[in-house]
Design a protein around this nucleic acid. Structure first.
Length: 468
RNA sequence: GGGUCCGUAGGGUAGCUUGGUCGAUCCUUUGGGCUUUGGGAGCCUGAGACUCCGGUUCAAAUCCGGGCGGACCCA
């Protein structure tokens, strides 16, 4: 494990050409080419999953103050961190315009116009946009930013409560598949009432445990009930001719998914990227001497073509530097598989493959099975990456029945599971006493279990942790 | 929300306490050349910095105030 995660994370972002945080505005950074590619492949995956029954749209960045202010709870949740546009050139605007902190209040007035009949439902739109939040706590690249550059937000409206509840389940399945594709482990919980999305009935969240033991919220799903429907007057005429309010949900993931991929899989040598998001899945490193240069290079090209024809992303590092330097570079950048090819290998008709996860070198014959062998190694690499990440999570969720033990367990880098009665007052007290945040309800409690803090019977198995 | 600390080439640093010797140290990075190439090579020769604004002073990287940026702690 990485010793000082915070420092490691900060350094790797720049060393591996992910982001540059030196842009002179706090909490805003540049996506550099290598990081941008990782982000692109991450987005392709979520879009692929959503496009099965959602449609992508794009709303304007600016939200009029009157709309943003309509939903009381919602405004309260965001008013401290909204950026405002107040001028057009030298003139004051007659209405302040907010840079969206999230898009409910931009989208729902339009839903009110679009939805007339039950035939229009359900409506399932999503967009990928940047959102702005004036974070007052210290910012951290990709994790706590003032411009969330990659915010995938889905917004659905349904005729019945049952349908909207089903939609929550669907989102959970989609996010599971999404995160599974990167081998990112997650803890799913229902957020406590005081940590519910402003305006929502309840919030389901995906948290990942980072190497330092802090949890990172990487996905949220909100059941909005009819709150926003009533505020924005989103009604439809049902089969029976009655006008009814819709039931709504929304769900988001962001840049933080990239942060979790980097943080969770990385090691002291650098990144270890899941093949699905790795800009290069195979990197070929030619070992060149003056003699036999052309032969080696042309064989490398040939291998590259074969692998590319099989759908893999491949690069050849033909820089005029020593091979050792290239090995270190690509280990830093987390390319899953390196293929080393020199004159000696050419004679033996082999290439030496090295996996980024365990560093093991194996000889692969340069025959017709090359492509299959490479794919096989990538699959094994992918499985191992995922498995060790899930093992890490399992080892770092500790159950206790002793409230006094909670803080120590968390300090030692764990997330703590505990039995809880579910009472608000009780929950607040647990947070106060331990100094940490209840993530939420993870599961039902076992029969006969007692709440860790009150005398009540426990209803739930809940999670508490140090959070980002 | 309250507090502590920090800001010197692209990155990491020395110098700051006690202002002058700074024409600013070292490592890394980087341009050119030679030589090398199976795990970060070597040599030669170049390039590159005192966060910004104001103040004190004969003199500011160094002292003072503020802005911007960053790290951490507490609630």
């Amino acid at each position: 494990m990485v010793e000082n995660f915070s420092e490691w994370f900060h350094d790797i972002l720049e060393e591996a050409n992910i982001t540059d945080s030196r842009y002179p505005i706090k909490g805003m950074a540049i996506w550099m080419p290598y990081g941008f590619k990782i982000r692109k492949y991450m987005l392709e995956k979520i879009k692929e999953l959503l496009d099965k029954d959602h449609e992508e749209v794009l709303f304007p960045l600016l939200v009029p103050e009157t709309e943003l202010a309509k939903e009381g709870e919602h405004v309260k949740g965001f008013e401290e961190e909204v950026y405002w546009v107040t001028k057009g050139g030298k003139n004051d605007l007659n209405e302040k315009l907010a840079l969206r902190p999230t898009s409910e209040t931009a989208i729902y007035p339009m839903y009110a116009l679009w939805i007339r009949s039950h035939i229009d439902l359900p409506i399932k739109y999503y967009q990928v946009v940047n959102t702005f939040r004036y974070e007052t706590k210290h910012t951290r690249p990709l994790i706590r930013v003032r411009e969330i550059t990659t915010f995938k937000e889905a917004h659905t409206a349904h005729a019945t409560k049952e349908e909207s509840d089903k939609q929550i389940e669907d989102f959970i399945e989609i996010y599971k598949e999404f995160l599974d594709s990167f081998g990112i482990p997650y803890l799913i919980s229902k957020r406590p009432i005081w940590d519910t999305f402003p305006g929502a009935d309840y919030t389901m969240a995906f948290d990942a445990i980072m190497p330092d033991g802090k949890t990172l919220q990487i996905g949220t799903i909100h059941n909005l009930g009819q709150t926003f429907a009533k505020t924005f007057d989103i009604t439809f005429e049902d089969k029976d001719g009655e006008h009814k309010y819709v039931y709504q949900t929304c769900a988001g993931v962001s840049d933080r998914v990239v942060a979790s991929i980097i943080g969770i899989h990385g090691d002291e040598k650098g990144l270890r990227l899941p093949p699905i998001v790795s800009p290069n899945q195979v990197t070929i490193i030619p070992i060149l001497f003056k003699k036999g240069k052309e032969e080696v290079m042309s064989k490398c090209e040939e291998i590259k073509n074969d692998l590319e024809n099989a759908g893999l992303r491949v690069n050849i590092d033909d820089r005029d530097i020593r091979p050792g330097k290239k090995f270190y570079d690509w280990e830093l950048k987390g390319t899953p598989l390196k293929l080393e090819l020199g004159p000696r290998d050419l004679e033996n008709n082999i290439t030496i493959a090295m996996r980024r996860d365990d560093g093991e070198k194996v000889e692969i014959s340069l025959d017709d099975n090359l492509v299959d062998n490479v794919k096989d190694l990538l699959d094994k690499y992918n499985e191992n990456l995922s498995k060790s990440a899930w093992d890490f999570q399992e080892e770092h969720v500790k159950f206790t029945e002793n409230l006094d033990e909670v803080a120590d367990l968390i300090e030692a880098g764990n997330v703590v599971a505990f039995n809880w009665c579910g009472g608000d007052e009780c929950g607040k007290q647990i947070e106060e006493k331990t100094g940490y945040d209840i993530l939420g309800i993870h599961d039902d409690a076992e029969k006969g279990a007692k709440c860790i803090a009150s005398d009540e019977d426990a209803k739930y198995l809940a999670l508490i942790a140090k959070t980002y």
